[in-house]
Design a protein around this nucleic acid. Structure first.
Length: 431
RNA sequence: UCCUCGAUAGCUCAGCGGUAGAGCAUCCGACUGUUAAUCGGAGGGUCGUAGGUUCGAAUCCUACUCGGGGAGCCA
């Protein structure tokens, strides 16, 4: 009799017979011996079939297996120093569940377009498995930290009647006989929820119809948006750095083998501890001007600016107090300097760009109403948002963390599209 | 939207004015420790689309289509 188990647990059955269910990742044969590389989602193991031991029938069954055929294999678990995972399986019996014909993704090189066209199969390779495992652990770390700090998860709507910010482009759709838009941020809804529950967060997709095609952009990406009543700028930043440091530490503690699969520099990640370095917008402009960048006070940073600033440090960098004129309408002006707002962007090291944008929000009714007029925003669709400043308004702050950018940085990958199972990029909606 | 690079076998690419090529994958054969296994053989192509130059175009020119990277903008 054999016990059904998974590759991750074969070590518990050394010397015993087990049955594994999975897929053939690769096969090498030498006429009278075959090496089957089997994966089952939990790991990889090499199964060895020797013709003189298994007999003609089982050996032929092994021979019939092709790349990515699904199978059930029974054999003896054997510790072996030559095996990357420490164990091999000596095959006793093999059952093909389905034979795969001409699997498109070989073990050779492939181009990005081809791989993206076959994303549904590309997910099966060790690298993509590692990325999805780490993504799941990042999401777990997010929930652990926020739930442990008194936050309540509140889910925001995907269909909205209007934009939350006035700049970026929206995906328009029909809501019966009304126009509607896919959400680009749940922030305003989280502000409402924070007045009900104190500390809240949303976690879900955001949609931006921008024609951006860089390694940092997705059309559909996930944002984690905490919002906190009675929290002001300084405390907002402290929570953000603890939050990000916690996520990185969690991944280091739970995803060692996955980071190894990706070839990530563990040392670089282990230096990510709070507090994070900070620069004011003013200091950043000075620094850039001293380093021959053509930029003036009042200009927004471009990607090259952000990369140069962030690359000075081995952990994320806060840049705070940007000019009011270039930031979102809802941001709270610095009481001592109304020309700047109490906001901060968190820039990841190594050129991964902005992973958090956050701010203290305007809580004064008159000032927010004035901003609506300045930005020519339709007051009827935002009446509820103004209401929050009419009925028990309090200072509050929040931020949005870009999940895929955070994952891309932690994993050290070239392109953000690998940080989500089925990326929506410019000009690609399939699969 | 702009800049830039690309499109040749299932995949990755070479060929850049004179008969369409290689490696891998597939199929057949050999091999008892392979680990991107190796070795021998076979099949596999309207050279992205449309036009133009030329005796002759995968190759040069024009337009278009699709895609990669970047800028802007953003998380």
């Amino acid at each position: 009799m054999s016990t059904k188990t998974t590759i991750a647990h074969v070590g518990d059955f050394a010397g015993q017979a087990v049955t594994l269910e999975g897929w053939l990742y690769n096969k090498r044969s030498s006429g009278k011996i075959q090496f089957l590389q089997v994966r089952d989602g939990t790991g990889f193991i090499q199964c060895v079939a020797v013709k003189s031991e298994v007999g003609e029938e089982v050996f032929a069954a092994c021979d019939s297996l092709t790349q990515e055929s699904s199978l059930r294999v029974t054999g003896l678990v054997r510790a072996d120093d030559r095996a990357p995972g420490g164990y091999e399986l000596t095959v006793q019996h093999v059952e093909a569940i389905q034979i795969s014909h001409e699997y498109p993704i070989t073990h050779k090189e492939h181009g990005v377009d081809f791989l993206m066209e076959h994303r549904h199969l590309w997910l099966r390779v060790p690298r993509q498995r590692a990325l999805l495992r780490i993504r799941a652990e990042v999401e777990r770390a997010v929930a652990d930290f926020l739930d442990g700090h008194g936050f309540t998860r509140v889910d925001s709507p995907a269909l909205t009647p209007s934009s939350c910010e006035d700049t970026t482009e929206l995906f328009q759709t029909q809501y019966f006989d009304q126009e509607a838009y896919l959400t680009q941020s749940g922030q305003m809804y989280m502000e409402a929820a924070a007045m009900a529950l104190g500390k809240v967060y949303s976690a879900g997709p955001a949609f931006r119809a921008e024609k951006s095609k860089t390694r940092r952009h997705l059309i559909e990406f996930w944002m984690i948006e905490p919002e906190m009543a009675f929290v002001e700028h300084e405390e907002n930043l402290k929570i953000q750095e603890q939050f990000v440091a916690h996520i990185v530490k969690h991944v280091l503690n739970h995803c060692e083998s996955e980071l190894h699969t990706l070839g990530r520099d563990i040392q670089a990640l282990s230096r990510v501890e709070a507090p994070f370095p900070r620069m004011s917008y003013d200091e950043a402009i000075d620094w850039l001007q001293k380093h021959d960048f053509d930029i003036q006070w009042g200009d927004d940073f471009g990607s090259p600016h952000e990369t140069a600033l962030a690359n000075q440090f081995d952990r994320p960098l806060f840049i705070e107090r940007y000019p009011t004129a270039i930031k979102a309408f809802y941001m709270q002006p610095d009481p001592n300097r109304p020309e700047v707002v109490l906001c901060a962007d968190m820039l990841a090291p190594e050129g991964y760009g902005e992973i958090i944008g956050g701010s203290q929000r305007i809580h004064d009714y008159a000032l927010l109403k004035q901003r609506f007029e300045e930005h020519k925003l339709p007051e009827d669709t935002y009446a509820w948002y103004l209401d929050l400043r009419k009925y028990g308004s309090v200072p509050h702050s929040g931020f949005g963390l870009g999940l895929e950018r955070t994952i891309a940085w932690i994993c050290g990958i070239e392109h953000i599209r690998e940080a989500i199972a089925f990326p929506r990029t410019l000009y690609r909606l399939y699969p």
